[in-house]
Design a protein around this nucleic acid. Structure first.
Length: 757
RNA sequence: GCUGCUAUAGCUCAGGCGGUAGAGCGCAUCCUUGGUAAGGAUGAGGUCACCGGUUCGACUCCGGUUAGCAGCUCCA
């Protein structure tokens, strides 16, 4: 009997006995055999050493194919695990979750956290395994056998993993001394991992659940050749160079949460004492809030005695009722004058702490005396410096202009409102945890607004509405405050106070389709204006818990999909991924490094009209409920500017550049001529400055380049005499000499705002 | 919020196994008056994040707080 193998070019090879993909590759060329890392057999990817069935359709996969690269990375992941197990014999191997960007990672339960230098040791060991061309082999066994084997090896996590795997048999791969459950495929030996780098180590949770043990994760990347790895690392470097946090600082655009305490506070020796703790048994039983439980009278009296008579204010700020009562918190604060704490006072505090813990029997109350009094805005809150202010103004002005042109009206609403407003809207129940703690004013509870919609709803309710005035399109650059978890804050990308470019459209059911389509068109027009060209869309449909009628959901989901299809945008549907109040589409843009950012969103809201009892009078004189659409185009202005900074690497297009032109006098003799020229440019609305520093031209050019000014105009003796100047663009392009009139004309043209369609 | 790492001049960072500190850039002043990415000199500037502990002595060691970074989780 002979065996047949079909190759991708349509030809068929015949073999006298059963063969492996590797043998087929060898029969074609020794070069191919050397490069082969995996094989696609009848559409599925396998090892190249498995026996082929007769008549198999076979593609030999090299390292430069997607599937081949996957096999290389997956194998590198196993090599890493093998190395870690050798270095840490007691390591518990868990699993290597899938990652997005092609990077591989593996989570280990280790006796101690990893340090960066551990990665060097792991890397070195991996290189040895690669050099030795350590083979990958696999065997198939029953689950029972696998359980027994891993138990003998002392690997306890594998039991749980085996529970998730369907079927009776599992595959176990071996590389060196390392064995692990794995579906494969793997490269035949470690030598195929030609280039790799361990990128970072970090923590992660077993099954991504914060209640579980913290594992040690190592992340790495691997390629089929060194050049591809170098390119990848270069891209990471490039992204780092563009990091908006770094550029924002260098270019003096904004700052987030910086301290400025560089002096003594003199007489203002006002410090705060923090008392942090978890609820005591007594507190739990009495059902009181934690603050009351911890800050009982005995403790307060004790503190007052120690620091009397300097206590100026002493109250336990109530722990918000939504907080987890068992979680330690520093929401309880006492303010007192205690600029310098004496040794006696410190000792007394310690004694009081001990006594409190004994009395409350929880042993967790901690009294910390800290000069908690610094010149800092607070994490996640942004300061916009003049350049950033200019950038924002330019973006927001353009935004306003486009909104008026698109038939919107602009509205404003306050930063605070009574918390009742969000109780009516329902947000209080769902999203309380994400709000800043309420503040008490005149016996009422107020909140910093976490969203703008209730305000717009109230404006709608200002008077009875007629169908004749719909649709109403109300937009607002509304700054909202959300309590984002400390660990998630990131430059401008994730902050606690940010400005939504929000709008709400109130319309009839007959108008919804048209409004959705218009809005999507507007989204694209605005994003294109800012220089983005590639978009994808995600449509999220009805989740299990929802409000509104099934009919309403189905209709609007169809409208959303139709709108996306008619624009020819690539999209995917996230079934059941919508918010409880309505379906939505999210638009994701791609930046110049190919990274994607979700900025825009268009959402139907069936919740607010119902909860606030919105209505309009239709043509038959009956009351009808309007449909409400939420939408944001840029998302958060803060985040969008962060994206713009990274997209343009700080070199903004002329119309967005905070400083468009800098006039450089060659010597101080030309300062007046330079000023005159800059004034002429400023007079027509261009943003021009003069370099005043007493430096050579080279230094001034360099500075302008570093400041990322799009263009400079050099004014020397010649130019000073005949007027005008010589243009040099950012990057070094020579613009030649131009008269003042020509300069004005030239820069006015360059500063035109792009017309997107 | 969780885990790990980090915190020294306006910025980027050195440094010391415990005896109060350095560089480059930037800034100020002076010299230089120059032609497309760095001219020179001098000077100012720091309670080494904050609060405790250990110690004769802490910027250094230990604990905590705050904040940043990476990841996890979350994202109306």
């Amino acid at each position: 009997m002979s065996f047949h193998v079909k190759l991708p070019d349509g030809s068929t090879k015949e073999f006298p006995e059963a063969v492996t993909p590797l043998m087929v590759a060898e029969s074609i060329s020794s070069g191919l055999a050397k490069q082969a890392v995996a094989a696609r057999v009848n559409g599925e990817v396998f090892d190249i050493q498995g026996t082929l069935p007769d008549g198999a359709e076979l593609s030999i996969l090299k390292g430069d194919s997607d599937e081949g690269l996957d096999a290389i990375r997956h194998s590198a992941e196993h090599l890493m695990a093998a190395a870690v197990c050798e270095i840490f014999p007691d390591a518990q191997v868990t699993m290597g979750p899938k990652s997005h960007a092609g990077e591989f990672h593996y989570d280990f339960d280790l006796s101690r956290p990893l340090e960066p230098k551990d990665l060097d040791a792991v890397t070195a060991r991996m290189k040895e395994l690669i050099k030795a061309k350590t083979p990958f082999t696999h065997e198939t066994m029953s689950k029972g056998e696998a359980r027994k084997m891993f138990k003998n090896m002392g690997q306890t996590y594998k039991d749980e993993i085996l529970d998730w795997i369907e079927g009776d048999d599992v595959t176990v791969y071996t590389c060196g001394n390392f064995k692990d459950l794995c579906r494969g495929p793997h490269v035949p030996h470690a030598g195929h991992v030609k280039a790799f780098k361990l990128l970072s180590n970090s923590g992660s949770y077993w099954r991504a659940d914060a209640n579980n043990a913290m594992l040690q994760r190592i992340t790495g990347i691997a390629f089929h050749d060194k050049k591809a790895l170098a390119e990848y690392l270069h891209r990471i470097e490039e992204a780092k160079k563009r990091d908006h946090r770094r550029l924002g600082k260098e270019m003096n655009i904004f700052s987030v949460s910086e301290k400025h305490d560089n002096h003594r506070y003199g007489n203002a020796r006002d410090v705060e004492m923090l008392v942090t703790g978890s609820v005591s048994q007594a507190g739990m039983e009495s059902g009181k809030l934690r603050a009351d439980a911890v800050l009982d009278d005995k403790l307060l009296d004790g503190l007052a005695n120690i620091f009397a008579p300097r206590v100026v204010k002493m109250n336990g700020y109530n722990v918000p009722a939504h907080s987890d009562p068992t979680r330690p918190s520093s929401d309880i604060q006492i303010r007192l004058f205690a600029g310098d704490i004496s040794k006696e006072q410190a000792e007394a505090v310690r004694a009081l702490e001990k006594e409190t813990n004994e009395r409350l029997e929880d042993g967790k109350t901690r009294i910390v005396v800290d000069r908690h009094f610094t010149e800092e805005v607070g994490p996640g809150l942004v300061l916009w410096h003049p350049k950033g202010g200019r950038l924002r103004t330019l973006i927001e002005d353009q935004w306003r202009k486009m909104h008026y042109a698109a038939g919107y009206d602009l509205v404003y609403s306050p930063h605070l409102a009574k918390s009742d407003l969000w109780k009516v809207s329902g947000h209080w129940d769902f999203y309380r945890e994400g709000m800043f703690s309420p503040m008490a004013v005149d016996g009422q509870e107020y909140l910093a607004k976490p969203m703008n919609c209730p305000f717009h709803v109230l404006m709608y309710k200002d008077r009875p509405r007629s169908y004749r005035e719909l649709p109403l399109r109300w937009a607002e650059l509304g700054t909202v405050y959300r309590y984002e978890m400390a660990g998630t804050l990131h430059g401008l990308m994730r902050v606690r106070g940010f400005t939504q470019d929000d709008a709400h459209i109130f319309c009839t059911w007959e108008q919804v389709r048209e409004e959705i389509d218009r809005t999507l068109g507007f989204v694209l027009k605005v994003l294109k204006t800012f220089g983005f060209e590639t978009f994808t869309v995600n449509i999220s449909t009805r989740p299990e818990k929802y409000v509104g009628s099934e009919d309403a959901w189905e209709k609007s989901e169809k409208y959303l999909e139709d709108a996306v299809q008619s624009r020819g945008l690539p999209y995917q549907i996230d079934e059941g991924g919508g918010a409880f109040y309505g379906p939505k589409i999210d638009v994701t843009l791609e930046d110049c490094l190919g990274r994607t950012w979700q900025c825009s969103t268009i959402q139907l809201d069936f919740n607010n009209p119902e909860r606030f009892g919105l209505s309009f009078v239709n043509s038959s004189g009956e009351y009808e409920q309007p449909v409400m659409l939420h939408r944001a185009l840029l998302g958060s202005i803060e985040r969008f500017i962060g994206i713009l900074i990274e997209h343009y690497a700080g070199v903004f297009p002329m119309w967005l550049a905070p400083e468009q032109v800098r006039v450089l006098p060659i010597a101080d003799d030309q300062l007046d001529a330079a000023r005159t020229l800059a004034d002429a440019l400023k007079a027509v609305g261009l943003r021009a400055t003069v370099a005043l520093q007493n430096e050579k031209l080279g230094a001034k050019i360099r500075q302008a380049q570093l400041d990322k000014v799009p263009a400079v105009i050099v004014v020397g003796k010649k130019e000073a005499e005949q007027g005008g100047g010589t243009v040099r663009y950012h990057g070094g392009t020579d613009g030649g000499y131009m008269s003042t009139e020509e300069l004005i004309e030239n820069f006015k043209n360059l500063a035109q705002i792009p017309e997107a369609s």
